[in-house]
């Protein structure tokens, strides 16, 4: 019989096909080093006297799993609570820090929250598309009214009134987002007929309308640049990581993210082809964000699987560690520093 300490509790777990004791413990405790894992296995075997061999448990069996007392709710099915690597120098540093400081209950809410936020992004993207299109159409009414005025169909007063009405409506609709096309000027200053020679009278208005869309396109491009930067960050981390297992895990995470990005990108491309779904820039942005999030998650999952299963000299044996080290460390060293570094390595090597 296991004697529980004050900070321990028991959770009843129904064994599923394919479960092993180590797998169940990983499910509840996350990744643990070998000695801690052995301790947890021993505790679990004491709590469940009928288990003689930790690799021999059967589907349907109910087993008692010792967990920390703070762990009051079981995790969501199929979700392993990971601990993220805290790397302050990376842009994800604050995210990792918050994640690691969160309680297990908060962490178990995350898959639902991610799904919810993706759904919200998609809904927001859809709404933004309609919002921008409707405002661009509204903006386009100024040149139309101007053409009518030039053709003598309406008076100058009628044209001025129509223009004022459109600008008021735009300011009401876009609020602070008017800054996207006004560049610090007022809407009245920007949305007016040009008197400059050699320039179409409605050129400024058309420029303002296209500016709105360009912001979204720029954001989508930034997503691609970020992918390239993340590969650079991975290589940088590999160069400065001293633990060979961690170096290989970083490599697997990076490669898995790139592979998942390419896979999901092609999947999205073929879906757009087959479904013939019209795509606006915001919808494309939502697709990009979803692909980036899914690629990141897949990379982390592959990293965990690698750390759990492999012996971890992949990065060194493929020469990636040496390459990244050449790019990020050797390039910044003067010849004297290089010599000092090489002496230190020789000293440590034996």
């Amino acid at each position: 019989m296991l004697q529980l300490t004050q900070d321990q509790d028991i959770i009843l777990h129904k064994v599923q096909p394919g479960d092993t004791l180590s797998k169940i413990l990983f499910h509840y405790h996350g990744h643990q080093d070998q000695s801690r894992l052995q301790g947890l296995i021993a505790e679990s075997m004491t709590a469940n006297a009928f288990i003689k061999n930790p690799d021999l448990i059967y589907p349907g069996q109910l087993i008692q799993v010792p967990v920390p007392a703070t762990y009051k709710t079981p995790p969501m099915a199929g979700f392993n609570v990971p601990t993220l690597k805290l790397n302050e120098s990376s842009c994800l540093g604050p995210v990792c820090k918050n994640w690691n400081e969160a309680t297990i209950e908060q962490r178990t809410l995350m898959p639902g929250l991610i799904e919810l936020s993706l759904m919200s992004s998609a809904a927001l993207a859809e709404a933004s598309d309609k919002w921008l299109n409707s405002n661009a159409t509204l903006m386009g009414r100024i040149p139309t009214e101007y053409e009518k005025y030039k053709a003598g169909k309406i008076s100058k007063g009628q044209y001025d009134y129509a223009r004022k009405k459109v600008i008021d409506q735009l300011e009401q609709n876009l609020k602070s987002a008017t800054g996207l096309y006004t560049d610090g000027k007022s809407s009245r200053e920007v949305l007016r007929i040009s008197r400059t020679k050699g320039k179409a009278p409605t050129a400024d208005i058309n420029t303002a309308a296209t500016k709105l869309g360009q912001y979204g396109k720029a954001a989508t491009k930034a997503g691609y640049v970020l992918s390239a930067v993340s590969l650079g960050v991975t290589c940088h981390d590999i160069a400065y990581e001293v633990n060979p297992v961690k170096r290989s895990t970083l490599l697997v995470e990076g490669v898995a993210s790139v592979g998942a990005g390419a896979f999901l990108g092609l999947g999205a491309g073929y879906s757009l082809l087959l479904l013939a779904t019209p795509v606006g820039w915001t919808a494309a942005l939502a697709i990009g964000v979803s692909i980036a999030v899914a690629s990141y998650a897949f990379g982390k999952k592959m990293g965990q699987t690698y750390e759990r299963t492999a012996d971890g000299d992949l990065s060194d044996s493929l020469g990636v560690s040496e390459l990244c080290s050449t790019i990020f460390i050797d390039r910044n060293k003067t010849p004297i520093e290089k010599r000092l570094l090489s002496n230190t390595q020789e000293y440590i090597a034996p």
Binding site: N133, K221, Y224, L266, A268, G269, L273, V279, G288
Partner: peptide, 24 residues
Amino acid sequence: FNESEQINYKEFPLSQYKTLMYIS
């Protein structure tokens, strides 16, 4: 392609999807 696609697929990065469609 509809009007919205005709504008968006002209420029990078969405032009890549258009190229994929041509390739297919």
